[in-house]
Simulated scan of single mutants.
Amino acid sequence: MIQHQLNSDLQYCENIIKKHSKSFYFAFSGLPAEKRYAVYAIYAFCRIADDSVDENPIIAFKSAAINQLRHELDLFSRHEERNHPLWRALRHVFNTFNMDIQPFYDQLTGQEMDIQFSSPKTLQQLEEYSYYVAGSVGLMLLPIIATENHQYLKKSAVKLGIAMQITNILRDIGEDFYEKNRIYLPVMERLHFGYGEEKLDQQLIDESFITLWEHLAVRAEILYDEFSNHLVKFDNDSKEPLMMAANVYREILNVIRENQYDCLTKRNFVAQERLEQIRV
Rank of each mutant, 00 (worst) to 15 (best):
R250Y: 07
Y178W: 02
I48S: 12
L141V: 09
M164F: 10
D262C: 09
Q68L: 12
V187M: 08
V255I: 14
Q260F: 09
N95R: 13
D51T: 11
Q125A: 13
V255C: 07
F117L: 05
C13T: 05
N254M: 02
Q124P: 00
L75V: 04
H84S: 11
I169W: 04
A64Q: 15
L191T: 12
Y261G: 06
A271C: 00
E175K: 10
T96C: 04
L73V: 04
Y132E: 00
F227W: 11
I162Q: 07
E128P: 00
F28M: 10
Q203K: 15
G138L: 03
C263I: 06
I48H: 12
C46L: 08
G194Y: 09
K159M: 15
S156A: 15
A246P: 12
N98Y: 10
D237C: 15
M140Q: 14
N149P: 08
M1A: 15
L73F: 07
A64I: 12
F61M: 12
R47Q: 08
K155M: 02
N236I: 13
L160D: 08
F97I: 05
L242G: 09
Q124T: 14
I59Y: 07
F269W: 08
I205L: 04
Y261S: 05
K121N: 07
A64R: 14
L275N: 08
L264N: 06
N67H: 14
A246C: 13
I59C: 10
Q107S: 09
A146H: 07
Q277P: 02
F97H: 06
E179I: 10
E240N: 12
F61A: 13
M244W: 00
L31P: 11
Q102N: 13
L108N: 04
P103I: 05
N15K: 13
V248Q: 04
V218Q: 13
M244I: 03
